[in-house]
Design a protein around this nucleic acid. Structure first.
Lengths: 128, 128
DNA sequence: TATTGTTATACTCTATAACTATA
DNA sequence: TATAGTTATAGAGTATAACAATA
């Protein structure tokens, strides 16, 4: 049941991402960096469940658009310190708001009671 | 939240499928055919959300192993009538049982009440 | 010599297009 | 000529391996 539902959700959020000029990976990275600065690209890759080589292009583009900051650590110039910028946070918030409002199409089918149980159950299973 | 959860579920069911010598697509096809005979491969592809060219290899293999039946329709020899065999149903049931028991690792975190609400909510949103 | 990040290569999966056989 | 199925080709996405820079 989860597979078709997730497919629909992803399809539905595509236009919202496009309106904010974000790819799925760009959005995922912004969300991860909004939860806190990360010290290495490898750590970020792990946090978003991606290969370290897979996010490089994404980081290049986000940096070009000043949505993230990415500079060599002065203490170890091999590593890149990563942080979201104010502009990046603004884009992320806008996209997230649109996505969450789109999700109402599904969550709106539930009663307040069901909705709270559903989200709590999902959260518990996700963090298991 | 759904994405990482589904990823884990899929990863967890892989060994169960392997033990029954099934690919993900093979399992999906057997499940679809177990819900009822299908008249054309295109219809089956649509039912499992796949391209019609994508399931041909799967059908070849399932047929070789006598898990499905696939014969030209006498009334229109262009179309292939598709049906699961008894052997196919047995394999599907075995795999499904293992998969569902594996899912207990997650559903077991919920109370009986939560579990029933969760599954009902999921079902309603899936069919929307 | 080991590690971070990058680039280059190969592989898998999927989608598109051309082909065969029936109608 | 149109349709079901098949095969061949091309494209996207991802993973693996080689490389450059720092330590």
């Amino acid at each position: 049941m989860l597979t078709p539902l997730l497919r629909e959700l992803v399809a539905a959020e595509k236009p919202a991402l496009a309106r904010n000029d974000l790819t799925m990976w760009g959005y995922v990275v912004l969300c991860a960096l909004d939860r806190g600065t990360v010290r290495t690209q490898a750590a970020l890759a792990q946090a978003v469940n991606a290969d370290k080589t897979r996010i490089i292009g994404t980081l290049d583009e986000l940096q070009d658009r000043n949505l993230i900051e990415r500079r060599p650590d002065p203490e170890d110039r091999r590593v890149r310190l990563l942080a979201i910028t104010d502009a990046g946070r603004a884009v992320k918030e806008a996209a997230q708001a649109e996505i969450q409002s789109g999700e109402e199409r599904w969550l709106g089918l539930l009663t307040a009671e069901e909705r709270s149980v559903f989200l709590r159950a999902l959260q518990r299973m996700t963090h298991a």
